[in-house]
């Protein structure tokens, strides 16, 4: 089991990225918190899970995505039963003091949520985690070319959607 200080170190080092990735995948603050909680419980229950891992961030992001996929499956079954949750989406971006910046960030969050999940995850990992296509492909079990093509499709959609605001900011 990771020691207490190890759990704290992991939280301080990766919680922001994990939380933002969870928000990007689930769009819901409560789900993101549950996923983050489950991930650290899993870390506490599996001693040595990170012993042979050279890239903790990629490893933990993979855990987060797998947990989110499981959540989607459970939610689909619930929504088929007419129990769709009515909760406002939460932005994965920090609030901005400047109203124009905040408007851009809100628009960016909306445009991001409109992307298909496979494009959204790759854009998130590429732009805000700085991962290479090889690392993204390994994390998502796809080829690097597929990761690169999905990224370009997603980025073009964001560009088209955010062009007016982006030109205003420039």
């Amino acid at each position: 089991m990771p020691a207490g200080d190890t759990l704290e170190r992991l939280y301080d080092a990766h919680a922001t990225s994990l939380y933002a990735f969870a928000l990007s995948l689930t769009r819901r603050d409560s789900d993101s918190r549950d996923l983050l909680q489950d991930l650290f419980v899993k870390l506490a229950r599996h001693p040595g899970a990170l012993d042979d891992v050279h890239d903790e961030r990629s490893f933990l992001l993979r855990w987060m995505r797998n947990a989110a996929v499981d959540l989607f499956r459970r939610r689909q079954s619930r929504e088929h039963l007419g129990e769709a949750l009515a909760e406002e989406t939460a932005s994965p971006f920090a609030p901005a003091p400047d109203p124009d910046d905040q408007a851009f960030r809100d628009a960016l969050a909306e445009a991001l949520f409109e992307l298909p999940e496979e494009q959204r995850a790759i854009v998130q990992l590429k732009l805000w985690e700085g991962m290479t296509f090889e690392a993204i492909a390994q994390l998502l079990n796809i080829s690097p070319n597929t990761a690169a093509s999905r990224y370009r499709y997603g980025l073009d959609k964001l560009r088209l959607r955010l062009r007016p605001l982006y030109e205003e900011l420039q």
């Binding site: 922001t16 939380y19 933002a20 918190r33 939460a90 932005s91 920090a94 960030r105 960016l108 732009l127």
Partner: peptide
């Protein structure tokens, strides 16, 4: 886009 900071928990 990459300069937009992520939200902290």
């Amino acid at each position: 886009l990459a300069r937009v900071p992520l939200r902290r928990p």
